[in-house]
Design a protein around this nucleic acid. Structure first.
Length: 223
DNA sequence: CTACCGATTGACT
DNA sequence: GTCAATCGGTAGA
């Protein structure tokens, strides 16, 4: 980056550095990060082109008293990124696919936020090619579909999301209904920790995953 | 080494 | 709604 670019706040890719979510954003409890990510834009730049999507569904995974969290039984070679610095990616394989998380809280605390769905914005044709599917609603509705559409795999495990390179999340929010009300429910697919309401989603957004049953809003009074 | 399993998806009734 | 494919990670012999 030369001085002119530095002064303009522009990196060599032409992206405004100020628009990228920074370390401080991720260095908080995962419940806050999960809610705060709704409405932000996920951006993936690769040799094939650029794709972007609005984050509409997330899930928090807690370091303590959360049996569904991959860090619950300590460090393993596979979950190492979870214990690393906040704002880095934790990408792990499941059922021969991938899921993408952002690491939260300080180094040594194994917590993260799973990005479950985005609403496609730019690069729809590229996403359709990667997914071998035309229906826009199904391009990134679900964590593994999202990874396929955005070409996210284990090579991006540990990737630093706080610089605008390959994969990052932009600061501006949009697409949240008036009043800022968001949905809250148990997490999808987990075999434990069902009493925890750690899934967050944009209400009435058709790009949120799950069936109609999953779109029901829970309150903290019910189990 | 083998056995088991999952934060999923897509096809099908 | 149901169900099976699929394979890396993990635990245990």
């Amino acid at each position: 980056m030369n001085d002119r670019e530095r002064l303009a706040g522009i990196d060599p890719c032409g992206v405004e550095r100020a628009s990228v979510l920074d370390r401080a954003f991720y260095d908080r409890a995962p419940e806050f990060v999960a809610r705060g990510l709704l409405g932000r834009h996920l951006i993936r730049r690769s040799r094939e082109g650029v794709v972007t999507g609005r984050i509409v569904e997330t899930e928090a995974y807690l370091f303590r008293e959360d049996p569904a969290c991959h860090a619950a039984r300590g460090r393993t070679p596979s979950n190492r990124a979870m214990f690393g610095p906040p704002g880095h990616a934790y990408v792990y394989p499941i059922h021969s696919r991938y899921c993408f998380n952002v690491v939260t809280e300080r180094r040594g605390i194994g917590s993260a936020v799973l990005i479950r769905a985005v609403e496609p914005l730019a690069g729809v044709a590229l996403m359709q090619r990667r997914r071998r599917r035309d229906a826009i609603r199904d391009l990134a509705r679900g964590p593994a579909r999202l990874c396929e559409a955005f070409a996210i795999d284990r090579r991006l495990d540990h990737h630093n999301l706080t610089v605008p390179r390959q994969l990052w999340i932009a600061d501006p929010r949009d697409g949240i209904p008036e009043g800022g009300q968001i949905g809250c429910s148990p997490r999808i697919g987990v075999t434990s920790g069902h009493g925890l309401l750690l899934r967050y989603f944009v209400l009435n957004n058709p790009f949120v995953s799950g069936t109609r049953r999953h779109q029901r809003r829970f309150t903290h009074e019910e189990s």
